[in-house]
Design a protein around this nucleic acid. Structure first.
Lengths: 100, 100
DNA sequence: GCCATAGTTCTAATATTATCGAACTACAGA
DNA sequence: TCTGTAGTTCGATAATATTAGAACTATGGC
């Protein structure tokens, strides 16, 4: 279906990743994805308008954090753990293991 | 001299810290501080105007990353490693150990 | 084909952030 | 006290980001 741009791990940029995770909505999305493995956008919208949620998923995608693929009419999202750990070893775990 | 606000470690906010480090200028400042231990603002200005540099240091201070204290006419800055490691174990190291 | 569902994209409004000149404060030395 | 140095604060402008409504696309089911 839609050709999402998922950057290659070699193109991940640390500052962009940190910026993506510096928004509470996105950090929460990533935390949830880490828990449940994968989820549709709608499952993680927290009652927000679709367009806002879609925007946040795009930021996460473009930073390399999230991979989105179409499954029927829904879009399934998951963390790009392997590639993130390859490019930035230990970083995602260090961030996700923190508590508020 | 000026009463800088250095937030208590218990008031550090993860999102704020990530945001502070998501700017290339600030990330570079923090990297340098990690190398040299401490430095004045002027030593890390990278040729930028004073007001810009001062702004970035303020963001870093308010996020809890940097401690600034007056020594004569200069302001010495250093990372708040102890407190950062206490509040967010492993986070700073995980970020600083990444390469571009 | 028609309709509902899931998300995206477009667009505009608002808010936040970055940048930098200029005026200001604090301190040290002559 | 006058001067220079180091940084801060103020104010304006420009750049980015967030939010959300509305129109659009793609898919599945009837």
């Amino acid at each position: 279906m839609r050709p999402y741009k998922h950057p290659a791990a070699s193109d991940f940029v640390l500052e962009r990743l940190l910026h993506a995770l510096s928004d509470p909505v996105r950090l929460e999305i990533v935390r949830r994805l880490a828990e449940v493995g994968e989820a549709s956008c709608g499952e993680l919208d927290g009652g927000r308008p679709k367009s806002s949620v879609s925007h946040h998923f795009r930021v996460l995608r473009e930073a390399g954090l999230v991979c989105t693929q179409s499954v029927g009419t829904t879009h399934m999202n998951s963390l790009r753990r392997q590639e993130l750990d390859g490019r930035f070893p230990g970083l995602l775990d260090a961030i996700l293991s923190q508590q508020d």
